[in-house]
Design a protein around this nucleic acid. Structure first.
Lengths: 328, 328
DNA sequence: GAGACTACTAAAACCGATTTAGATTCATAG
DNA sequence: CTATGAATCTAAATCGGTTTTAGTAGTCTC
């Protein structure tokens, strides 16, 4: 049983394709098509289980109701949840998603961007691994609908949704102090070119009571386990009693490493940016700075759709959402 | 700068669209087109940064190089990783993905399936929440390329990829015995209609040394936390010293609940189906039955592609992969 | 120099929708 | 009896590719 086309409906009713198309697109009244004829068309469409061919439609009207999403790694819970949020909102608004992962590979990211665009997506939501906005400058120059999430660039006239990383980091440090921590160190990720990470470091610095006691440890992003282990060795002789992890991957590695060394989480108080389920399962539980992931996704989708509906008048917005301290 | 079309290349070179199309599709030699002409065409295509419009192409040849993927929940690490595996393999083979979540909602799953098909995907990889094969019988009757993963149906002549759940569960129980556990109970999920769960229960039963000592606890899937808490209350007076969790969600809840009650994981030995990172972070670590997720994804994609290339001759296969005991 | 063959290229149909510009009918006004 | 116009509907162009069919030169054969 082949799928029914416009033509099938038109022929079986003895009317033209044009009429059928107009009726089914709700332009029947506007175009003065007889109510009874309209009803017959709709009836027949149901009967034949007609659904328009999206590709013919896309070819003609230049839109495909598909949004591209590029994230570093969908199997990372943060991005998985973000995609879920995006998908829900997009689905409600009648859009589908094409999701791709870069695995932080800048070359792959470039290729993916052009691949997706050439698949005629209507717009792109991008959590970029690029180290500068230059890489996507070309995209924005062509006026392609783009929303950056999670990782954004300063002074860049593009729609974006991010969280107040500086503020979130400050909250984390203040929380540590309030729990009696005297000297918090910061476990950071290198390289730090992504905006979110560098901002969190700045927040840490800003919140320190005594800037001279700042201690920043760089964990290489391609060997988190090893980096954390080295860091702990190095810190053996330093006196510190709290750790602020700039993301959950570092925190997970830290928890694992500490327990392998038989050191309790009671001795060193840990707090992390990004709240994940693990923090609620380990003992003792770990506090965290949670991002409003659902809202990030929802906002990103709506910025895009606003742009679609408003091609000319749209002004790029940089939305910055607040984080929440999850105290455990 | 608008995107270049076939016509642009043809006109700027003074040849026909047809010639350009043939050359760029590698049929130049076959059709005896002058080598030099071919080179000029390719050169110009590069110069104009030409990429074919996938929708025009899809409309004409009836394929879109897009695979639909439907899973219960992409923010669940298991499915996130599965999607990642599928995406990698598909990407390598030149296919894109459209991913959607059902959240175990059968109605949404039905709608998603028809939505995706009407977006002209070439094939579908489905981790279904349906309780019977009847729901997708219609799909297979139309001969639509479909591969079931994770959750499959017996006696169903459809491509599928799953793991040997019975065998995996047996391994888990045997492992518990080998570690001195005397009486393992099974924390299962209700309802149990999905094949994977019921098979794991069967594996548990089969592996018990004394079937009279079987103890099966049903955890409602929509209140795992509460279900686990109730189960632990109920088990207070029973003597048991090991728990086999049929999936990671139950295990996570169990670990959390045990530590909240101050009970150590040393007293009750826990093992879970599905291996997740958490099990390597908590203290003590948790052993697990790992699924070869990457291979599942890869196999599913290749079954689909084989079907594409082999429309008539393709025979549905039920691939069953082995699990691995991850001992910690 | 006609017929056949080779090497190359163009034209046109087609996929299935949308949309523009116009055609047809019929009633009413002048 | 014709012009005006409202009400209905349609033909055809279009989107950007792919593929089939048909053609034109030029060369070779006898």
């Amino acid at each position: 049983m082949k799928k029914a086309s416009l033509k099938d409906i038109a022929e079986s009713l003895g009317v033209s394709k044009a009429l059928v198309s107009l009726v089914l697109n709700g332009k029947g009244d506007e175009r003065g098509i007889n109510k009874q004829t309209q009803e017959k068309v709709r009836q027949k469409a149901r009967e034949l289980n007609y659904i328009p061919n999206q590709y013919a439609r896309g070819l003609r009207i230049g839109r495909t109701n598909t949004i591209g999403v590029i994230v570093p790694d969908i199997s990372n819970v943060f991005y998985g949840t973000l995609c879920k949020a995006i998908e829900q909102e997009a689905y409600d608004k009648g859009y589908n998603l094409i999701i791709s992962n870069t695995y932080e590979d800048v070359q792959k990211e470039k290729k993916l961007i052009s691949d997706l665009i050439n698949r005629n997506i209507d717009g792109l939501i991008l959590a970029s691994s690029f180290d500068s906005k230059n890489e996507i400058q070309g995209l924005t120059d062509t006026n392609f609908p783009l929303v950056l999430v999670d990782r954004v660039f300063d002074d860049f006239d593009v729609d974006s949704v991010s969280v107040s990383n500086i503020d979130g980091a400050k909250k984390a440090i203040e929380f540590l102090y309030s729990k009696g921590v005297k000297r918090p160190v910061c476990f950071s990720m290198s390289p730090v070119y992504v905006s979110s990470i560098s901002e969190r470091i700045k927040g840490y610095m800003d919140a320190l009571k005594d800037p001279n006691k700042a201690k920043l440890v760089q964990i290489p992003h391609d060997d988190i386990e090893g980096g954390v282990a080295n860091a702990l060795d190095e810190l053996q002789n330093e006196d510190y009693d709290g750790v602020f992890c700039v993301n959950n991957n570092i925190a997970k590695a830290l928890i694992r490493e500490l327990s392998m060394r038989g050191e309790s989480l009671d001795q060193v108080r840990v707090i992390s940016f990004d709240d994940i389920e693990v923090f609620d399962i380990v003992n003792p539980k770990i506090s965290a700075i949670a991002q409003p992931i659902h809202e990030i996704g929802k906002t990103a989708v709506n910025l895009l759709i606003d742009r679609f509906n408003n091609e000319e008048g749209h002004k790029p917005q940089q939305v910055v959402l607040d984080t929440v301290l999850v105290e455990r």
